[in-house]
Structures are given as C-alpha cells and as structure tokens.
Computed example of a mutant assay.
Amino acid sequence: MADIVLDVLGDRDIPVLGNVEVGHAGPNLPMPVGVRAALDAEKGTLSLLEPAVRRPPPRPPADRDSREGVGAGAAGSGGMGRGSQKRAGW
C-alpha cells in the first residue's frame, strides 16, 4: 500500500501519515478536521496546535420576567399585558 501512495504522490514534498489508527475502521482515535497541527517525521509525532473543541460563548442572562413566570399578557395570550416588557441591556 505504501508503494501505491508514494507512486500517486510522485515528487510532491508533502507529509504523509501511514499505519495510524484513525478513520472509519476501529479501533481508532478521534482526529479533528480543520485544526492546525504539526507533523514531526523524525520524532514520529503529530501535535495539535490549537484546541479541537471550543467553549461556546456565554449566554446572556434570562430576563427578569421569564424567571418570574410573568409576561404572558392577558390570559396567557402573549399580548402587552402586565410584565411583558423586556429588560434592555442583556
């Protein structure tokens, strides 16, 4: 298999990984896509240069009316009943 890959690549100067347990057949390791990585052929290492998962931004706090269960308007119609105005600045 290595001969076929090298034959297809020709003289291109690009890194190639082989015999690595990633992909669709198990057992395998998760390999993030779109993350910068460094391949060191001499050391035989592949290092991720940035996090593979990012923490989502914090959510704004719920407005006061939602927390208190107020704001549905007259008879729960969602109209402009008492307590239906939302607090600005979140």
Rank of each mutant, 00 (worst) to 15 (best):
G34E: 04
A75Y: 14
A38C: 03
L9N: 02
R12Y: 12
S66G: 05
D63I: 08
L6N: 13
I4N: 06
A88H: 01
A38Y: 08
G44P: 06
P58I: 03
N19T: 12
K43R: 12
R54D: 03
P60H: 10
R87A: 01
V16S: 10
V35W: 07
I4F: 11
D13Q: 15
I14M: 13
P30A: 14
L17F: 13
R55G: 02
N19I: 07
Q85I: 05
G89C: 08
A88L: 06
S66P: 00
M1Y: 04
R59S: 11
E68K: 12
V53D: 06
L39R: 03
L48W: 14
A72G: 15
P27A: 02
D40L: 01
V20R: 01
P15C: 09
P51M: 04
V20T: 11
G44W: 01
D65L: 11
M31N: 09
A72Y: 12
L9S: 00
A75I: 01
A37C: 15
A88E: 09
G71K: 09
G18T: 13
G89R: 10
A25Q: 14
P56C: 01
L17P: 06
V70Y: 00
R36H: 04
G73D: 02
E42P: 00
P51W: 06
A75W: 11
P27C: 03
R36C: 03
G44R: 05
P57Y: 02
P56T: 06
M80Y: 14
V33N: 15
L17E: 02
E68H: 10
L49P: 01
V5K: 11
N28I: 02
K86Q: 04
L17H: 06
G34H: 07
L17W: 13
L49R: 12
P60D: 12
E42I: 03
A52D: 11
G83Q: 03
G44C: 01
G10C: 01
S77M: 09
G18C: 10
S84C: 10
P56N: 05
L6G: 02
G83W: 10
D3W: 00
A41C: 02
A75S: 11
G89W: 06
A2G: 02
D63P: 15
A25E: 12
D13I: 09
L39Q: 00
G89L: 06
A75K: 08
D7K: 12
D3F: 01
D11S: 15
G78I: 04
D65I: 00
P27T: 04
D63R: 15
M1D: 07
P27D: 06
A62K: 14
E50K: 05
S66F: 13
P58T: 07
V53E: 12
G76V: 05
V5R: 13
V33Q: 13
R12L: 13
E50A: 15
D11N: 15
D3L: 05
A88Y: 07
N28G: 14
P58G: 04
Q85E: 11
G23D: 08
L39V: 15
L48S: 10
Q85L: 12
V22L: 08
M80N: 15
R87G: 00
A88N: 02
V20K: 08
G69R: 11
V8N: 05
I14G: 08
